[in-house]
Amino acid sequence: MVATSQAQFAAALFGPETMPLGLTTARGEADQSRFAVYRNNVSVALIKALEGRFPVTRRIVGDVFFRAMAHAFIAENKPKSPLIFEYGDALPSFIENFEPAAGLSYLADVARLEAGWTDAYHAAEGPVLAASDLGAMRQPMQCRFIAHPSAMLVKCSHPAGTIWAANQLAEVSPIAASGAETILIVRPFADVHVHILPVQDALFAERLFTGFNLGDAGQEALSRNDHFDFGTALVGLVALGAFAAIEEKGTT
């Protein structure tokens, strides 16, 4: 009689040929094909989790490529938590270094957007700042803006937002965009929204999200881009539900 340790069982789930010691069947002999059911279950569950979280990434590369990439990812990245909807946080950076996808330089950015989408979907509820709240600022230039709990900016060196949006349709048309995009993902109410920010507003949004006050964020944005319009940019971000609250005091 041989005892089977869970360490050995767990390791064998990810090894191609080995089977833990101490397994048997009603026939009285171990059967590799039966252990393979567990190996297959684990693999199918994890691939399904990644397919569910990265549908556009999958659509771009196709099922076969995606599955092979998922296999390679899983080999290096076991889920750390039973909260399987969090699995795949590291897929975007994995894609960056995944040699077979090197020709698709935008793929990691698309995956980053999709990972952020799930994060926004499951994020905490929070108040949503309204444009009418802006009038209450006593010293506007000293104010900081607290991001909504679901809000995040994804800075992409490729037009990942445009690619992602095009892939929400049944048929994908050719994409004209080619430059960098800063994307706001936010779920102010029931649904997750993905917005490609106007180029001149991207730096301003970034600065506000990292805790700069309104004055400093606006000044820097203006110094970098003549088309930046302070009021339009702020009201625009607020209207998209990017913020939860205004913090009146303090400067950076």
Partner: peptide, 17 residues
């Protein structure tokens, strides 16, 4: 059943003796 070993979640309901 069990489904975690050390820090890894194995995403299946695994058998025990």
């Amino acid at each position: 059943a069990w489904s975690t070993h050390e820090s890894a979640f194995l995403s299946d309901l695994l058998p025990l003796p």
